[in-house]
Design a protein around this nucleic acid. Structure first.
Lengths: 327, 327
DNA sequence: GCCTCCTGGTGAAATGTTTCATATACAAGG
DNA sequence: CCTTGTATATGAAACATTTCACCAGGAGGC
């Protein structure tokens, strides 16, 4: 039974009122009590549902936000996606999710598609700088696009500092910073900056290895570690990894090399992802406040007053031991 | 600069052609070479993008599919979401994602909202039976809604059988089946059915404990296991868990009770989720073909010919050892 | 040279809303 | 009883598309 879906006109007729009156009822504009009741009854009877497409055409508002993420298979991205979706739902918005596999072409393509789909705004975590539209509200995660586009990020710099301070507090005397990531600059680069800054100030030796995706095979890190070994011992005793995933991979390499964590070398990661099915961390880590980040993105994007939104919002991180440090 | 976005009318004027001609060009309807070029040039010059909302209003097609999932924080759901999104993108469709926390009210609400948003169809993995619309294409995952709504699922029955056969092949003589899940019937219930069927046929003792979400605290399982222990030994030597997550929790309880896996008891889970950052499984398990399931959902939903779609599609599962069995 | 046919461009109508200028009804004041 | 003012319902216009009946122009046949 393909009964054409009822329209406002049908409701108006059924209720014996004018079209405009029906519109008012569904937009919460005050209307005579008796009229409201008549309309509501007619709508219920016909099973009327507003057509958001017609509404969007008229108002240029769609109550839809596009979210662009590299993927949703990574626990941190998954948490972001979930929290953003929930925060949007609370405000009666829906989420149009695009996944890009961090492919620059696809990323740009998504931005273009969003323009067609008339989302009310975009929240984007992308690995590449993008051409984003002038008059489409945009909030970046971990990346600044333009002065007038806000960026939400964890306090990466502070997190890097915190990692260094923790390792030193735990007795380390020779540190290393290892990172992977995109070659294009991002807020997450500050993790290393903060870490190195502490080492510099405190005059602690700090080895650094920065790799970009695509050139970050395990052998690179193994070589780095081997170069710092003599007689089966590592001269480094504290490692800060730019992500928990990298920390995990480093642990595997260290195990192969016959080194023990945290006895021989302590490791701190970044992200705070949990093992599935519990609260257990993969490693000692700097925790990013995923929920708070999601909430902030949504707040900024949907802010009524877009005149004075900050260019960058840094949210506080925290340290949590996860078995790869000695405490 | 809030330059109103250019419309087809603007393009038509710029190109010096009629409105209908512009429409044809953007819909791939053949049009004179010279006209096509004029239109394409004008569109490029003005930065024209079709307005999908106006188009949707006219055609009742939106190239958008709504996906309803309990959440995206579970590796299996995340994999589904990602694969569905990619499969849709390949067909030039976008994904509107709703997360429900498996709350029946929210689930129903999502279905209603989709009607408003005029998605072209719904792919839904829900924990509760829903009232779904007559004329909105729907594909269920793991759940049959109505005879005319297709359901895509892994071969749960076959997976259950496979688990039993594997455990027996590995020398078990006294089995158990543990499950959690929703109380409302679902395809996933067949996991236990298949498992028990093998035990029955082969006359193997099989203990069964079925719990529903909300009544599946760890103490329930601990008690069950304690009831089967005597002098620090378990009389059960092979356990099939309805999910990998449950298998993981059972492992923890067994460890607390001083039992070793797989020496004292072997365990097989269901799902095939991987530890983050690698291919490592959480346990020996029956693997669900997430990508194939996603692809199938999309195929069924967007099938041109909706006259003879199957009521149920069962996709083959496979067994993989993951350290909780002796092989 | 004229008529017919056919190809393909044209522009008005229609889609389901919101908005706004207009109309109506009713109350109060003279 | 008439006037004025206020409050509120009305319905036409507009939004950006697609579609379709119509029309123009060129080709081919007699």
């Amino acid at each position: 039974m393909k009964n054409a879906m009822p329209t406002m006109k049908d409701v108006a007729q059924e209720a014996g009122v004018a079209l405009g009156t029906v519109s008012k009822v569904f937009n919460g504009i005050p209307v005579g009590e008796s009229y409201r009741i008549k309309v509501e009854e007619a709508a219920r009877k016909l099973g009327y549902q507003v057509n958001q497409y017609a509404r969007g055409l008229k108002t240029n508002k769609t109550n839809t936000v596009a979210v662009i993420l590299p993927g949703v298979n990574h626990p941190f991205f998954a948490a972001l996606a979930q929290h953003i979706c929930e925060a949007l739902a609370r405000r009666d918005y829906r989420m149009l999710l695009y996944v890009t596999a961090s492919n620059p072409e696809i990323e740009q393509n998504c931005v273009n598609m969003v323009r067609q789909n008339k989302a009310d705004g975009i929240i984007g975590l992308t690995y590449n700088p993008l051409a984003v539209d002038e008059d489409l509200p945009f909030v970046g995660i971990d990346r600044s696009f333009r002065a007038d586009i806000p960026c939400v990020a964890a306090d990466n710099y502070g997190g890097g500092r915190l990692a260094a301070e923790k390792l030193l507090e735990l007795g380390c005397t020779h540190l290393a910073f290892l990172r992977t990531g995109s070659s294009s600059p991002s807020e997450t680069d500050k993790r290393g900056d903060g870490f190195e800054a502490v080492c510099r100030t405190r005059q602690i030796p700090c080895e650094v290895l920065r790799r970009n995706d695509g050139e970050d095979g395990p052998e690179v890190f193994r070589e780095f570690l081997l170069a710092h070994m003599a007689e089966g011992k590592l001269d480094i005793d504290g490692i800060f990894c730019s992500t928990d995933l990298l920390a995990w991979r480093i642990q595997n390499i260290l195990a192969e090399l016959g080194l023990r964590v945290p006895e021989d070398v302590q490791i701190i990661g970044f992200d705070g992802i949990r093992r599935f099915g519990g609260e257990e961390l993969y490693c000692s880590t700097i925790i990013q406040p995923a929920e708070k980040m999601a909430e902030t993105c949504v707040d900024l994007l949907l802010a009524k007053d877009r005149s004075n939104i900050p260019a960058l919002v840094c949210l506080p991180v925290s340290y949590a031991p996860g078995g790869t440090t000695r405490e």
